[in-house]
C-alpha cells in the first residue's frame, strides 16, 4: 500500500534527522539508541498493523491505535518537561552573559570617570601656578 511506503520513508528520514549531533555528547548516544528502537517499532507497526493490536491486547489496551495515543501523550509530556528544563538553562546563560556585559560597561565607565577626575586634578594644579605668578607680577 502507498500509505505504508510514505510512512516508512518518513520515519526513516526523521530518524536520521534526529540522530545528528546537537548539544551534549552524553545524551547523543542514548538518543540515537532510542531513535533506532523507535524507527524499528514504527516500521514494524506500519507494515504489520495487526502486530500493534496484538501487543496492545497483551498489556490490556483495546486497540493498537489507543496504545499509540497513550504513547504519544507520554512522549509529549517528556517533551514539555525537557523543553522547560532546557529553557531554564538557556535563560540562566543569558542572565550570566547580560550581567557580564552590564558589569563590563560599568567598569569601563568607572575607569573613564577616574581618568577624567585625575586629569581635572592635574589641570587644577596647573591652573594654580600661573595665578600665583600673576599675583607676584602685579606686586
Amino acid at each position: 500500500m502507498w500509505i505504508q511506503i510514505l510512512l516508512v520513508v518518513g520515519v526513516i528520514l526523521i530518524g536520521f534527522f534526529l540522530a545528528r549531533p546537537a548539544g551534549g555528547d552524553s545524551h547523543l548516544a542514548l538518543r540515537r539508541l532510542f531513535m533506532a528502537a523507535f524507527v524499528a517499532v514504527a516500521i514494524l507497526s506500519i507494515l504489520f498493523p495487526q502486530w500493534l493490536s496484538w501487543f496492545a491486547n497483551l498489556i490490556g489496551v483495546g486497540r493498537g491505535a489507543d496504545l499509540m495515543l497513550y504513547a504519544l501523550i507520554l512522549a509529549f509530556l517528556v517533551f514539555v518537561a525537557t523543553t522547560y528544563r532546557r529553557n531554564v538553562q538557556v535563560n540562566h546563560r543569558i542572565t550570566l552573559l547580560a550581567r557580564e556585559i552590564a558589569l563590563a560597561r560599568a567598569d569601563a565607565e568607572d575607569a573613564r570617570a577616574a581618568i577624567i577626575a585625575h586629569e581635572a586634578e592635574s589641570s587644577d594644579a596647573a591652573d594654580e601656578r600661573p595665578a600665583a605668578d600673576r599675583i607676584e607680577r602685579e606686586d
Binding site: I94, T95, A98, R99, I101, A102, L103, R105, A106
Partner: peptide
Amino acid sequence: LIRHPVNLGQGA
C-alpha cells in the same frame, strides 16, 4: 546606573 541590556528579572 548599571544597565542590563535585556530584561532579566528582579533577582538577576
